[in-house]
Amino acid sequence: MKIAALFPGQNSHAVGMGQAVAVQFAEAQDVLRVAEAAVPGLTALMHAGPLDELTLTANQQPALVAASLAVYRAWQVQTGLTPVCAAGHSLGEYSAHVAAGTLSLEAALTLTRRRGELMQAAVPPGVGAMSAVIGDPASVREVCAQVQASGVGVVEIANLNAPTQTVISGQTAAVDAASSALRALGLKVIPLKVSAPFHCSLMQPARLGLTPALEAAEYRAMSFPVVANVTAEAVSDASQVAGLLERQITGSVRWVESVQRLAALGADTFVEFGHGAVLTGLVRRILPGATTYNVHTPEDIAAFGMAGLGE
């Protein structure tokens, strides 16, 4: 069994996430202690909410890092297993680098707190929008290019999540125009409830704001490669990480290619660490028949251990 560790991004959150493993496993408790020291008040928010405050980008980003890594550390200690590679969806790339040893947990929490603040502030409320599009990605790319060329505004590919699921992001008028054109072509378009238009050029102020902190962070030797969102290439050289995380803020999340790259690295089992199972579902669409697990609770860890022993 060769495991690819997967770490979720925004909107995989829930009040209470990470709490069950922290009650049962000391290593998960340690992660939450570090999280509280790095972002005071974060663990109480994770434990009891309110949900609307936890949902705020500046809170949600470090909270997801803490919850995912609490589960990951407990899983690793209890099973004695180590991944051969990892990837994270957007924000989750920071969690992947902590798992690989590139970043300390403290650094990832501090960076994602600042990242969330900057991304929220980059575009005034109501100015930007995002929509998920079900259909041919080539058509989505062509329509976005046509709308931008017409001068309506910025609309770009934000996420390539699955073979027929693409997310567009940009100025509200441009996203609306692209959505209308795509519906006219017979594609399904679903407006997303987001606080800002992520992963497009409108996030340039956030990219510039986070660059000094990314450059100042300490990057250590990696114990396994992490596939970068913005290139879909495996990274084993820690000196490349700051630049890739910087580019990720305005660049597309190339998730389909990233999952394919994990498989090319030899991964035959894909394990998503954290609340929800969004990435697990996407992997099944990208690699039909792939072995997948979602690990979030002590019961998930126990079930994984039994499954592993049976192979």
Rank of each mutant, 00 (worst) to 15 (best):
R254C: 00
L245H: 11
A213K: 00
V123P: 09
S169P: 07
V227N: 05
E117I: 01
E311F: 06
A122Q: 08
L81S: 06
D268R: 02
G276Q: 08
K2D: 13
Q240H: 14
R183T: 15
M1A: 13
I134N: 00
S236G: 14
A174K: 11
A267T: 06
L111P: 05
V23E: 15
Y94H: 13
T102D: 03
R114T: 10
G128V: 13
S104C: 01
T110Q: 13
E257V: 00
V39G: 09
I286A: 04
A28E: 11
F224P: 08
F304N: 02
S139W: 00
M306F: 01
G49K: 13
A138F: 07
V84Q: 03
H47F: 04
A158G: 04
V147T: 13
C144Y: 01
S252R: 10
P83M: 01
P83Q: 00
N229D: 09
T297F: 10
V271N: 02
A234I: 08
L111T: 04
V278Q: 04
T79C: 10
Q165V: 07
Q248A: 02
G266V: 04
N229S: 05
V23K: 14
F224K: 10
L187T: 00
G251N: 12
A35I: 05
R220W: 14
I249M: 08
A26M: 09
C144S: 09
P8H: 05
Q10I: 13
V241K: 04
D136F: 12
A70S: 15
V65Y: 12
I157S: 09
V34A: 15
G49V: 11
G305C: 02
A264L: 03
Q148H: 03
A35S: 10
Q204M: 11
A121M: 01
S95L: 07
T172I: 11
Q204V: 09
L210R: 05
L309H: 10
T292L: 07
E53D: 15
V143D: 04
D30N: 13
E215P: 13
S139G: 00
R284V: 05
E233F: 00
S90K: 05
Q171N: 05
R261V: 02
A216Y: 02
A121V: 03
F7T: 03
T172H: 07
H199G: 02
A66K: 10
